[in-house]
Design a protein around this nucleic acid. Structure first.
Lengths: 366, 366
DNA sequence: CTGAAAGCGCTAACAA
DNA sequence: TTGTTAGCGCTTTCAG
C-alpha cells in the first residue's frame, strides 16, 4: 500500500487523564501490554515481571485512570444495572427505599453499579425506555411497573429486564412478587379470629393487581371463616397517604350515624398510618377503640409499631439483582437461557401495637 | 476453511442494535449524516429535508438506538451524575431517601441520570474514588462524607465534586449544609421557654461536625436563657436508631434513682423515636410525662408527628445537583469558575405532638 | 449540503 | 513475551 500520510500529532483536546497509550509510551511498551497489566485484560499473565513493574511505575507517575466509557464500548458491558421507577416529589416512597436498599446491596455484591431512572409515570417509561437501554446499563429492573402488554412487547430486546411487582406480566421478563393474597388473608383471618366483624378495607386502585390481591385475601378470609364481609366495607382508593386520607374521610362522611368499623385494614402502611391519624383526630384511641393494620412493613410502620403484613422488600430487591445479573451473564456468553416467569416470596404477619380485640359497644360515626 | 487472505466482512459480534453506519447504508448516506439527523449533532441543520426523511425512515426500519457509551466516549460526557454515600443494610437511611429524592428530581430536570455508589464506609470511598471517576459520571455528589483532608487533596481533579453535609470542608468542593446550630438553638430555646430544665441531649458522635453543632446550639440556648445546662445531660452516641437505644438505655442505667429528664432532644429523628419507644416501654407517656424532640424531619418523624427541627433535605439534594451541573458545564467549556465554599440552608422548628410543658412533679428513674 | 477521515480510550485477535 | 492491527459506535474537523 501507499505511504502513510502521517499527519500531525493532533492537538488532542486533553480531557481525560493519562491513557493506556500514554502509559505504554512512558514505559516503552505497547498500550496493549499496559492494558494487560493495569486492567487485567485477558493476556495479563503473559507479561514479564520487569515489564510489569515499568508499566506500574509509569502508570503511577502519569496518574493513569482507566476510562470506564471506553472499556464499556469495547466490552459492550458497563457493569451497571438500572432501576426504573416512578418517583414523585410530593410523596416520599418508602416502598422504593426498602427495595432499593436490597438492589444496592445486591448490586454491590455482584460488582455492579446502580443507576436510577426516575420517571413521573409509566407512559413516560415506555417513551424513554429505548433511550435508557442504550448501552449505559447492562440490564434494567422495573420497579412496580404499570405497563401495557403492547409496551411489554416493545421492550428493547438487547437488554435483559426483571420486574418487581409488575402489574402485568411482561413477556420474557421475570417478575418478582410476594404472595399478597396470602398475606391479606392471614391478616384478615387474625382480625376475624379476634372477633372483628366490621373490617373496613381501604384498598388500592381497582386496576392494580396488587390491590386486587389484597382485596381477594380479605374476602377469602371472610369466606373461610364463614363470615359475610360487612357490606360496603371495601373502599377503593390509592396506595398513598393522601389518597388514604381522602378515601377514609369520604367513607366516614358517607356512613355518618352508622357504626364505626371495629378495624381498619389499610392497603399499605401509609394508608393505615394516616387512618390512625384521622381516628386520633376524632378522639378515638388505637387500638382500644379501633384496630388499624397495614401492609408492607415499611420503615415508618416499624417505627410506629403498626401491625402489618411484611413483604420482604429488601429481599425482593436482592433477588431482582441476582436474577438480572444471571441473565446478563447468560446473554453475554450467548448461552441459552430459560426465563423464569415469576418468583413469589412469602409474606408474613407482623404483630405490632395497633391491633386489639374489638370493643364491646359499637361507636357511631359522628 | 483453508482460504483466508481476504479479510472477511468480520463477524461483528452483533451486540448492539443497528448503528448509525447501518442506518446510513440503508438510507444511502453517510453515518455522519445519520448522526446529524438522528442525534442532533452540530451539523444537524445542514441536512436537506428529503435526506432527513430517508434517514428517519431507515432508522425506524432498523430500529436504530443510539449508544450512550459510544457517544460518551466521543463527547467525554455521559450526562450522568453520581451520588456516593454509605449505605448500610441493617439500618435504612431516611436521611438518604430525602436527599436522594431531591437529587433525582434535580437531575431529571437537568436531563441527567443518577448513579448511586453505595459504600460501606468512607475509607472505602477513598479507595474507590478513582475507579468511580473514570468517565462514567460527569460529576459526583458526596453525601455526608467523612473524609480526611489528605483524602480531599487526592480527589481526582478531572471530576467536579459537590458535598452535602461534609464533615470536613474539602478543597475545591462546594459543600451544602444547613444551619444546624441555629436549629438546635431554636429547639432548645423552645424547650427552655416551656419551662424544661433537665433536657437530655442524646448527641451524635463527638467527632461529627454536625453533632458538635447540635450540641453547640443546645448549649448556646441555655447560655442565652441564663440557664445552666443540667450536668451530665449531654450523652454522645451515634445518629442511628440502635445507637440511640444504647445511649439512652445506658444513660438511664447510670442515672438510676435520679430525676427523669423532663425532655429529651435526640440528635436525629431516629434517636428521638427510639427514645419514645423506650419511655413507653417504661410506662411513661409522651409528652405528658416526658417531651421528646428530634432533628431532621424525616418521613418517619412526620408520620409520628414528632416535634423536630426540619432540615430542608430535599432542597439540599436539588441544590447539590444544580451546583454540580453548573460546575460540569463550566468545566466542559473550560470556563474559569470560582468555586463557592459553602451553601448554608435554613433549618426550621416543626411543631409536632411530642412536646408539652414539663410535668409538675419530677419522676425518678427506675 | 454531504462525505471521508480521524480519533475518543480500550480490548481482542493475530503476528512476530 | 510482546507489538500490530482492527475495531466498539459516535462526533467532529475538513474537504468536496
Amino acid at each position: 500500500m501507499s505511504e502513510k500520510p502521517k499527519p500531525k500529532p493532533k492537538p488532542r483536546r486533553t480531557r481525560h487523564a493519562a491513557t493506556l497509550a500514554d502509559v505504554g509510551r512512558e514505559a516503552g511498551v505497547s498500550a496493549m501490554a499496559a492494558s494487560a497489566v493495569l486492567n487485567g485484560a485477558t493476556t495479563s499473565s503473559r507479561i514479564s515481571q520487569p515489564t510489569r513493574e515499568r508499566i506500574q511505575e509509569a502508570a503511577a507517575k502519569l496518574r493513569y485512570r482507566p476510562n470506564a466509557t471506553a472499556r464499556g464500548l469495547a466490552d459492550r458491558r458497563m457493569n451497571t444495572i438500572g432501576v426504573a421507577t416512578t418517583f414523585s416529589a410530593n410523596e416520599l416512597n418508602q416502598y422504593f427505599l426498602e427495595v432499593f436498599n436490597g438492589v444496592i446491596e445486591g448490586a454491590a455484591a455482584a460488582g455492579q453499579n446502580t443507576t436510577v431512572f426516575a420517571l413521573t409515570d409509566w407512559p413516560e417509561c415506555e417513551r424513554r425506555l429505548p433511550a435508557i437501554c442504550d448501552g449505559r446499563i447492562d440490564g434494567l429492573i422495573l420497579l412496580s411497573p404499570w405497563l401495557s402488554l403492547e409496551a411489554g412487547d416493545k421492550l428493547p430486546d438487547h437488554t435483559p429486564f426483571v420486574s418487581v411487582h409488575a402489574n402485568q406480566l411482561l413477556p420474557g421478563v421475570t417478575n418478582i412478587e410476594s404472595d399478597e393474597e396470602a398475606g391479606a388473608f392471614e391478616m384478615t383471618r387474625q382480625l376475624l379470629a379476634l372477633g372483628h366483624r366490621r373490617i373496613l378495607h381501604l384498598a388500592g386502585p381497582p386496576d392494580s393487581i396488587g390491590a386486587q390481591r389484597r382485596v381477594a385475601g380479605y374476602l377469602a378470609a371472610h369466606a373461610a371463616a364463614g363470615v359475610p364481609p360487612a357490606p360496603g366495607h371495601v373502599q377503593y382508593g390509592h396506595f398513598t397517604t393522601e389518597a388514604g386520607r381522602r378515601a377514609f374521610t369520604e367513607w366516614l362522611l358517607h356512613h355518618q350515624g352508622q357504626p364505626m368499623p371495629e378495624a381498619i385494614f389499610g392497603a399499605t402502611d401509609s394508608v393505615a398510618l394516616v387512618a390512625i391519624d384521622l381516628l386520633v383526630e376524632r378522639g378515638l384511641r388505637v387500638p382500644q377503640d379501633v384496630s388499624v393494620v397495614g401492609f408492607d412493613d415499611t420503615l415508618a410502620a416499624r417505627s410506629a409499631h403498626l401491625t402489618t403484613v411484611r413483604q420482604p422488600l429488601r429481599e425482593m430487591g436482592l433477588r431482582a439483582v441476582e436474577l438480572l445479573v444471571q441473565r446478563i451473564e447468560a446473554k453475554q456468553q450467548d448461552k441459552p437461557e430459560r426465563v423464569i416467569d415469576q418468583v413469589v416470596l412469602r409474606t408474613e404477619f407482623v404483630k405490632g401495637r395497633t391491633l386489639a380485640k374489638p370493643r364491646k359497644l359499637a361507636l357511631l360515626i359522628a
